[in-house]
Nucleic acid binder design. Structure first.
Length: 279
DNA sequence: CGGGCGGCCTGGAGGC
DNA sequence: TGCCTCCAGGCCGCCC
């Protein structure tokens, strides 16, 4: 399940390999992704264009093309991109294929079809409905703990739910929300409004540290992640709490608990993560 | 309007 | 071995 570190890892791999390649054809083998893939539009806007650069916003990849059109792409939870330079058998989940002039191809593979592939016309990214309501990037310097504190001060919902809300802060999925809260020593059920500015400083620092470590490791891999070279990346980042119900806390030796919040598993150490005492 | 929740989707795991 | 159920999860849209 690609979270921000995985997507950023893929972006970097694509950025090192795609710019300069010219799309000369494409194939939509199965348009039934999160939203139906519009092959005609994709063809009109992408074929005969050359890749300029690859950007990332939240967990979306933006492949910028010549004439300022772009391909907006989301890997959902089982999507992967493969850059192939020699003939490779098709997988039944290879849904969209871009052919480059030099004979290489970019494949969008997605068994669960939660991803998206869409062509965007020049200028269309600025107010794109998928992007327009996204919160700040956790790793951007412009994202300040003061802003998070101010927004959160009015919100009663548990801090873990808020951390995972892309309208508040992007790119923090279930794994990293759990990990960051553990490292910050904050109980996941703490009401967001209960956290003081110092705690937001600490929490943002922990979110950034966890994300940076995962990027450095090449992305945490659980089940589905295949990096853009097509190899299964099995760098299991050492996780402190996620998926460790019943095991020992690495810090205090206590037992890791599992609860469910908005339908998602939350893992924490009840000893190390205490409800906030500030107000 | 904040925010919880259902549904999308399929492969893998676990139970019998 | 095979069938069934459950679970994973980002994100939209529904609804209270």
């Amino acid at each position: 399940m690609p979270e921000l570190p995985e997507v950023e890892t893929i972006r970097r791999a694509l950025e090192a390999n795609l710019p300069g390649r010219k799309i000369v054809d494409l194939h939509v083998r199965d348009p039934r992704l999160r939203w139906p893939v519009d092959e005609t539009r994709l063809r009109q806007l992408a074929v005969f264009e050359t890749v300029r650069c690859i950007e990332r916003r939240s967990k979306y990849l933006l492949i910028q093309l010549g004439r300022e059109s772009a391909i907006l792409l989301h890997l959902g939870m089982s999507g992967s991109l493969l850059l192939l330079t020699e003939p490779t058998p098709l997988d039944k989940h290879d849904h969209v294929i871009f052919d480059f002039e030099d004979g290489s191809e970019l494949r969008f593979r997605d068994p669960r079809r939660f991803g998206m592939v869409e062509a965007v016309q020049p200028g269309g990214l600025r107010d794109h409905p998928r992007l327009v309501n996204l919160g700040p990037e956790p790793l951007a310097r412009s994202t300040r703990p003061e802003k998070l504190f101010a927004r959160a001060s009015r919100l009663q919902r548990p801090v873990k739910n808020l951390l995972m809300d892309a309208g508040f802060l992007v790119g923090v999925g279930n794994i990293y929300a759990n990990e960051a809260l553990f490292h910050a020593g904050i109980h996941p059920q703490t009401a967001a409004s209960e956290l003081g500015l110092d705690e937001w400083r600490l929490l943002l620092r922990c979110v950034r540290r966890v994300l940076r470590k995962a990027i450095a490791a090449g992305g945490t891999t659980l089940n589905d992640f295949v990096n853009s070279n097509g190899e299964t990346g099995y760098f299991q980042l050492s996780l402190a709490v996620y998926g460790r119900e019943g095991e020992r806390c690495k810090r205090c030796g206590g037992e890791i608990q599992r609860i469910v919040q908005v339908g998602r598993s939350t893992f924490f150490c009840a000893n190390c993560q205490t409800p906030s005492i500030t107000s």
